[in-house]
């Protein structure tokens, strides 16, 4: 059974201009020990869907789902206090900007111990020992000295390590990393990604990596979900996604990568991601899609089979020969 199982998740925000559907009918499943990457451009709903699963969205959001279960428990009808026992302990999250997610008024040691105090029955000295151990696990040099440092005294990469230490403090079963390396330099990014995948392998936890960087996806993920404008448009193992994308959006996105370019001019996707007031009828990608026809512009496409990457498309690409006959 899957560790996290989300079916038909939708999130609507009440805004001044009416309600806005940020996430629309998204399914997410992660098994223990699996690395799932959720990729998409800004506004694709990749962060919002995970925040919704953790119940961290503000009151303006309405979350609906047919199923939202973690480790066999239904997260939908959990009380706030029961939810807090799960969030931060069994599911934890790290964010993009380590500098702004740490409290500047407390030492990083205090902040790591706070996570332990909140969730585990450890006494003060045991917490101290565990904090030191965690700092060592995430590869911070001279951890005794750094425990008493404030976030502003550490670099971005070190702060992200502290965030990771806090997130894994209670041995979570699932770690959600929301753009964990976007704010960091490439050499530091490589260190942090190695750390995350190493911890994931050692502890056997599930890891959801939210990112927009196709390179990061290719190097770390086992399975990839591609989101576009609140829809999940494709879901495939990483090897096959990069070779045979089935949704035209995934194909266009991969073609637009400069490193895959064969000519001086890059292939582009015309237009922009639809916003609140210009959502098209039918397929959301149809105004930018090279393959779209009248059916795409009028009817919401179905989700194809797993063999076709669960592509949400009327005309998926690279259909295997035997499926065409049926």
């Amino acid at each position: 059974m899957a560790l996290l199982n989300i079916r038909n998740l939708s999130v609507e925000f009440a805004t001044g201009g009416g309600s806005f559907r940020a996430v629309d009918g998204v399914d997410v499943t992660v098994d223990g020990g699996e690395v799932l990457a959720i990729v998409g451009e800004s506004g694709s709903g990749k962060s919002v869907s995970m925040l919704a699963a953790m119940g961290l969205l503000p009151w303006t959001a309405t979350v609906t789902a047919d199923e939202l279960s973690f480790d066999g428990r239904d997260l939908r009808d959990l009380s706030a206090s029961a939810r807090r026992k799960v969030i931060g302990r069994e599911i934890s999250m790290i964010f993009q900007e380590p500098m702004s997610s740490l409290n500047p008024c407390f030492t990083v040691g205090f902040q790591i111990r706070e996570a332990l105090k909140q969730h585990l029955k450890l006494d003060s000295s045991a917490r101290k020992k565990r904090a030191l151990e965690l700092m060592e696990m995430v590869g911070i040099p001279a951890p005794e000295k750094r425990l008493t440092a404030f976030p502003h005294q550490l670099s971005g990469g070190m702060n992200q390590r502290v965030m990771i230490a806090m997130a894994i403090a209670c041995d979570p079963k699932l770690l959600i990393a929301d753009e964990p390396t976007t704010a960091l330099d490439v050499t530091i990014q490589a260190q942090i990604l190695d750390l995350l995948t190493g911890l994931q392998r050692d502890t056997g936890m599930g890891l959801i990596l939210i990112t927009h960087d196709m390179g990061v996806v290719a190097e770390t993920a086992h399975r990839v979900a591609v989101q576009y404008a609140g829809w999940k448009v494709e879901d495939q193992p990483v090897e096959t996604l990069f070779d045979t994308p089935h949704h035209p959006y995934t194909a266009a996105l991969l073609a637009a990568l400069p490193e895959r370019a064969t000519e001086r001019r890059l292939p582009t996707i015309p237009g922009v991601v639809p916003g609140q007031f210009d959502r098209p009828q039918g397929c959301l990608f149809s105004p930018r899609c090279a393959h779209a026809d009248d059916l795409c512009r009028s009817t919401v496409p179905p989700v194809q089979s797993a063999a076709l990457g669960r592509a949400r498309c009327h005309y998926p690409l690279s259909v295997p020969a035997k499926e065409k006959v049926q």
């Binding site: 390179g215 290719a218 090897e239 991969l254 990568l257």
Partner: peptide, 22 residues
């Protein structure tokens, strides 16, 4: 720097040089 830049090719064999420190 070149070895740290992730490549969008899952089949590529990684020979990453890990830089210590910052």
């Amino acid at each position: 720097l070149l070895s740290a830049t992730p490549s969008a090719d899952p089949a590529r064999v990684r020979k990453r040089i890990k830089l210590e420190g910052e």
